[in-house]
Simulated scan of single mutants.
Amino acid sequence: MARFHVYRLKQDGALVIAVQSDLLSSLQTCAVIPLLPKGELSPVIARLNPEFEISGRFYTMATQFIGVVTVSELGPDLIDLTGKADAITAATDFLFQGF
């Protein structure tokens, strides 16, 4: 798994962003945040829930639903969102720190 990459979960096909440090790649688990199709999350808080375009569709990062999956549950790597690292990190900072 690679941090800030989007994966499709094998079990249900949901999209998630890996947010765990690459330094912890030896663990059997990975911290992830679900991506929901735009319009499926309410309310949306801009700083907490950034939006990303993936394959021509818009998704909202549901930061408040952060969780952990086993690495074996991660399917294909779909896109690298490292270029959006500031927005992703700001959302997790807002979740944990409140700023």
Results as ranks from 00 to 15, higher is better:
Met1Thr: 02
Met1His: 05
Ala2Lys: 10
Phe4Ala: 06
Phe4Arg: 08
His5Leu: 01
His5Gln: 05
Val6Leu: 00
Tyr7Asp: 04
Tyr7Trp: 04
Tyr7Thr: 02
Leu9His: 02
Lys10Ile: 03
Lys10Met: 02
Lys10Trp: 01
Lys10Cys: 03
Gln11Tyr: 13
Gln11Arg: 14
Asp12Arg: 12
Gly13Ala: 05
Gly13Ser: 06
Ala14Lys: 15
Ala14Ser: 15
Leu15Ile: 09
Val16Lys: 02
Val16Pro: 01
Ile17Arg: 05
Gln20Asn: 03
Ser21Ala: 06
Ser21Ile: 05
Ser21Met: 09
Ser21Val: 12
Asp22Asn: 04
Leu23Arg: 02
Leu23Lys: 07
Leu27Ser: 11
Leu27Phe: 08
Gln28Asn: 11
Gln28Gly: 06
Thr29Val: 15
Cys30Glu: 07
Ala31Pro: 02
Val32Gly: 03
Val32Leu: 04
Val32Phe: 05
Ile33Ala: 11
Pro34Tyr: 10
Leu35Met: 09
Leu36Ala: 15
Leu36Val: 14
Leu36Tyr: 15
Lys38Ile: 13
Gly39Ser: 12
Glu40Phe: 08
Leu41Glu: 13
Leu41Thr: 14
Leu41Gly: 15
Ser42Lys: 14
Ser42Ile: 12
Pro43Tyr: 01
Pro43Glu: 06
Val44Trp: 01
Val44Gln: 08
Leu48Lys: 08
Asn49Phe: 04
Pro50Thr: 10
Pro50Leu: 12
Pro50Lys: 09
Glu51Ser: 15
Glu53His: 11
Glu53Ser: 11
Glu53Tyr: 12
Ile54Lys: 00
Ile54Thr: 06
Ser55Met: 11
Gly56Leu: 03
Arg57Gln: 15
Arg57Gly: 04
Phe58Pro: 00
Tyr59Asp: 06
Tyr59Val: 02
Tyr59Gly: 03
Met61Glu: 04
Met61Leu: 10
Met61His: 05
Met61Lys: 05
Met61Ala: 11
Ala62Thr: 09
Thr63Trp: 00
Gln64Ile: 08
Gln64Asp: 07
Gln64Ser: 13
Gln64Asn: 14
Phe65His: 08
Phe65Ser: 07
Ile66Trp: 05
Val68Met: 07
Val69Ala: 03
Val69Tyr: 01
Thr70Asp: 11
Ser72Ile: 09
Glu73Gln: 13
Glu73Ile: 00
Leu74Val: 04
Leu74Ala: 01
Pro76Tyr: 03
Asp77Thr: 07
Leu78Met: 02
Ile79Pro: 04
Asp80Leu: 07
Asp80Pro: 00
Asp80Val: 06
Leu81His: 02
Thr82Ser: 07
Lys84Asp: 11
Lys84Phe: 10
Lys84Leu: 03
Ala85Ile: 04
Asp86Thr: 14
Ala87Leu: 03
Ile88Tyr: 01
Ile88Thr: 07
Thr89Cys: 07
Ala90Asp: 13
Ala90Gln: 09
Ala90Lys: 06
Ala90Ile: 03
Thr92His: 09
Asp93His: 14
Phe94Ala: 14
Leu95Ser: 12
Leu95Glu: 13
Leu95His: 04
Phe96Asp: 06
Phe96Met: 14
Gln97Lys: 11
Gly98Ser: 13
Phe99Thr: 10
